[in-house]
Simulated assay, not measured.
Amino acid sequence: MTDRHSTLRARRRAETQRSIQAHAVRLFGERGFDATTVADVAEAAGVSPMTVYRHFPTKEDLVLADASGQLVAEQIAATPADQPFMRRIAAALVGAAGHLNGGAANDPGSDRGFLLARTQLMITTPALRARHLDNHYALQQAVVGALTGESADPDEVFRAQAAAGACLAAMHTALVRWAQDDGRSDLPELIARALTAAFGEDAV
């Protein structure tokens, strides 16, 4: 019974977070990041400002918080362990993009529309561009952890860090192009093209 209640609480918490974040991203896109307050977001989401802060400690977190690290790590875990790091990361990034690319780009309620709005905000808002580096580092750490596990070999960790950093830079280039194209391009294909341009035909 306790486990079931814990699962239900976690599910409700995740649903609340997603609802708050969806309203925040929509309002930031309509009114601008600086012109929208946390109180505005709380009112739109039907919760109190305290609830917003409980889930998102800063205003920037309303845009930047995501679960992409876990999704990419799961994708890496599904790749053959004997493949080179670069190929495993590339396959995971393209696969994760496929999962996040559902629905219409002009529908903010779809995964694709939400990701597009988030990405466009991160590109155009100076405060978010600065904080985006924290997200990039967290995603890199998740990738490295998925590749190396409990490994204490510093050389292996270094190789994983280098591969992850390079692949994520290529992915970022694809995301910027996708956002500038207003989501009309196919995101997984664009990421694959960026990885191929950077590392050759064998990258993906």
Rank of each mutant, 00 (worst) to 15 (best):
R88C: 08
D3Q: 08
D34I: 01
Q21M: 08
H136K: 11
A130V: 11
L116S: 01
P126F: 12
M50T: 14
A105D: 08
L100F: 14
L133N: 09
A73F: 02
Q17A: 15
I123D: 06
I123H: 08
A81W: 05
A39D: 13
R88A: 05
A130E: 14
R26C: 02
R118K: 11
V72K: 02
I123Q: 10
I89D: 00
R11S: 11
T125V: 10
Q70S: 12
L133G: 04
R18C: 01
G95C: 07
G32C: 04
H132S: 14
A65Y: 12
E74W: 03
Q83R: 15
F33A: 07
H23T: 03
D40W: 07
P57C: 09
L121C: 08
A10Y: 07
D107Q: 14
V52T: 06
L133A: 15
V94N: 05
M122D: 03
R88Q: 09
A81M: 06
E74H: 10
V47Y: 05
Q83P: 06
R54I: 13
A91V: 00
T58D: 05
E30C: 02
D66V: 01
R112F: 08
G103E: 12
N135S: 14
H99L: 10
D134P: 01
H5L: 12
A127Y: 03
A67R: 12
A45F: 09
R12I: 00
